[in-house]
Design a protein around this nucleic acid. Sequence first.
DNA 1: GTCTATAAGCAGATAGAC
DNA 2: GTCTATCTGCTTATAGAC
Lengths: 187, 187
Amino acid sequence: MPAPLISRDEVLNRLAAAFRQDGYDGASISRLSKSTGLGKASLYHYFPGGKIEMAAAVLEHLGARFDKLILAPLRSSALPEERLNRMILGLSEFYRQGESACVVELFAIGELQSSLGSALDTVLAGWIDTLASVLEAAGQPAARARSRAEDAVIAVEGALVVGRARRSVEPFQRTLAEMPGRLLAGN
Amino acid sequence: MPAPLISRDEVLNRLAAAFRQDGYDGASISRLSKSTGLGKASLYHYFPGGKIEMAAAVLEHLGARFDKLILAPLRSSALPEERLNRMILGLSEFYRQGESACVVELFAIGELQSSLGSALDTVLAGWIDTLASVLEAAGQPAARARSRAEDAVIAVEGALVVGRARRSVEPFQRTLAEMPGRLLAGN
DNA sequence: GTCTATAAGCAGATAGAC
DNA sequence: GTCTATCTGCTTATAGAC
């Protein structure tokens, strides 16, 4: 049996890019085959459950990447302000300075929502919780920390959506730039 | 020739509901046929350009509804605060208290973006401009009015996306509730 | 583990009767 | 204007050789 041409991780990277560009329904198996450079049958060898399993694997892969780039910095032992700055750098990388679509857009539509939706909920809830605890560490009362954390998540997702419709990365970049001030205002 | 079973407006309402639930790719002609109660051929009679024309018509229909519910109140001659309140009521109705998906999610994905994307841009740009002018009328300097208007739009879209992923209308409703305070703070 | 070839079904779209 | 029946092509998915 021939050795794999590319690593599973690289397969997931390319699948993720394809799904993020075309959406779940728009990314046909043929296109995924071309994007990965693997034949259809090879794709089914990696993911016997078919397209839905590919999407689930991509979502898990993105979740891990999100954890590494955004959540891990928030959990570090650095100063709260520094943790926030690292989160912002991580967001910029994860969303490629605003050019990548927000993940929710891709996996929370139609029937996919019932099968993969809970994973999205888990990631967002974890993000809000972790961010809120950083704001508490920065001296904010729990309730305010929580609603500000929620607002920050909403602002990031909203900026991605608006930027996509307007074909501009400016909303995303401005939102990130103003984030520390908004999160820490009145501290 | 038989009389039409339902008005074109009603056809558009039902198509809009179907697209908003399943997304563009997820809404097959068969499903659209069932959703509207019209046979496939009737659907093509209304929209000879096929599915993409149906989507374009729906987008235009939603744009008109958006104008009526959100932009018209902003353009009225009432007090600025009152105009903002009416916009918020309109948003709540347009998005059915947060249960309808944000429109950008549906029409700014994949190949559809290039054909229908500019309509979305136009609506969002108009919304931001109109809202900014209301904030100026309320006494805010132009630059601040504009960035706050942009932030409000971002917050609404973001709240819809986050709420969809988390299967909750709470983010949307809280965002609307806090909007007047945020738009008019420090006035 | 990869490939080519192919099966089975559904997609978008149309023809033509009424 | 609506319907049933149908066409073509692409979809997901599989079989089987290497």
